[in-house]
């Protein structure tokens, strides 16, 4: 018997599956877009570079 890939169920549920698929793609796009916007709005981020930075040490002398 030949393997029948396209079951009748697939045809019947095509619209539903397509809709869910498009929604998922849309959701991923939204999360990606939000990430880009949030990162841009955060401003310049200074990474830790394994070098002591005096500017980060609290000033204890009251100056």
């Amino acid at each position: 018997m030949a393997l029948r890939v396209e079951h009748e169920l697939h045809k019947r549920r095509f619209g539903r599956n397509l809709g869910v698929g498009l929604l998922l793609v849309g959701f991923v796009a939204i999360v990606f877009g939000l990430t880009v916007v949030k990162v841009q709005n955060t401003g310049f981020v200074e990474g830790y570079d394994h070098v002591a930075r005096p500017a980060l040490i609290p000033d204890e002398g009251g100056n």
């Binding site: 079951h7 169920l9 549920r13 619209g15 397509l18």
Partner: peptide, 16 residues
């Protein structure tokens, strides 16, 4: 396959 072939009560995307 008989079970998944049941159409009664199966909503389409528009129904959801």
């Amino acid at each position: 396959t008989q079970n998944i072939g049941t159409t009664a009560g199966e909503g389409q995307f528009g129904d959801y």
